[in-house]
Simulated scan of single mutants.
Amino acid sequence: MSERSSMAACNSFATRQASRYITRLYDRHLSAAQVTNTQFGILVLLWETPGMTMSELALAMVMERTSLVRAIKPMERDGWLKTERAAQESRKLVLSLTESGHNKVQAALPLWQKAQQEFEAQVGPEKAAQWRHDFLELTRNT
């Protein structure tokens, strides 16, 4: 197999491998707060932007709605967030954090900061910032 056709030349393979590695790093830190990296992302987005609809949250997370529903169900069951019908359009669900959800974010933030520090110690703060910028730009343009 030539270098051109090998997995070492595959952008998808490399980014998925990196994604799994980074997710494990963050999950390891966040596990002390009994929250996953995905759950933390959802909680923080709702903390920063209360009242997001399912569609808005799915777009922000770059997730299929069905995957988002599966991720949200345990958090709703555990009392971290609640869903309500939108006042103007009853077909839309609006999500917000409960007090327990706010507490979960507060407990997880210092752990997330440690994960950030560990990652940046491995790749360097400048490279981490550049990657963040590039990846966010890529997903914003889709």
Rank of each mutant, 00 (worst) to 15 (best):
K114Q: 15
E120Q: 14
R77S: 13
N11L: 15
N11D: 13
L46T: 00
E56Y: 02
S67Q: 14
S90N: 04
T66D: 13
M1H: 12
R70W: 06
L138D: 07
A58H: 01
T66W: 12
A32P: 02
A107F: 01
L109E: 06
P125W: 05
L43T: 00
V123G: 07
R140D: 10
D134R: 14
P50I: 02
P110E: 03
Q116D: 11
P50H: 04
R16K: 14
E137C: 14
G101A: 02
F119H: 11
E76Q: 13
R20D: 14
R20T: 12
A115G: 12
C10H: 11
S100A: 10
M7N: 14
S5P: 05
L136V: 05
R132N: 09
M61D: 02
R70V: 06
L81F: 02
F40P: 00
Q113T: 07
S31P: 01
M7G: 13
E120R: 04
W80C: 07
T36S: 12
F119Q: 08
H133M: 10
T15K: 10
K73A: 15
T49H: 15
E118P: 07
E137Y: 10
Q113K: 13
P74D: 05
F40N: 01
T142S: 15
S2E: 10
H29V: 07
V94Q: 00
G41D: 04
R24P: 01
N37I: 07
T15C: 09
Q113S: 09
Q39M: 06
F135M: 15
W131C: 12
N11Y: 14
R91E: 09
I72G: 03
E120C: 09
A129E: 07
R16A: 15
L109K: 06
T139N: 11
E89T: 11
H102V: 12
Q34V: 03
E84M: 08
A33R: 00
R70F: 06
N37H: 12
N141D: 14
L43S: 00
S55P: 00
G124D: 03
S100E: 10
S19P: 04
V123N: 02
F13N: 08
S19D: 12
Q122W: 05
T98L: 02
L109H: 05
Q17F: 15
L138F: 11
A87K: 03
E120M: 03
L45W: 00
R20Q: 15
L43V: 01
E89Q: 09
S19Y: 08
Y21I: 15
L59V: 08
L46Y: 01
C10L: 09
M63E: 09
S55I: 10
G124M: 03
M63Q: 12
D78K: 12
L59E: 13
M75S: 04
H133W: 07
A128E: 06
L30W: 04
W112D: 06
L95D: 00
P125R: 12
L59D: 08
A115I: 00
T15E: 11
A14C: 11
E99H: 03
L95N: 02
I22P: 04
L109C: 07
A115S: 03
Y26A: 08
T38R: 09
T36V: 04
H102E: 11
A128C: 07
A58C: 02
A129R: 09
L136Q: 10
E64C: 03
H29T: 04
K127R: 14
V123L: 13
A33T: 01
G101S: 00
H133V: 05
T36R: 03
M1D: 14
T98R: 01
E48K: 08
T66A: 12
V62A: 15
K114H: 08
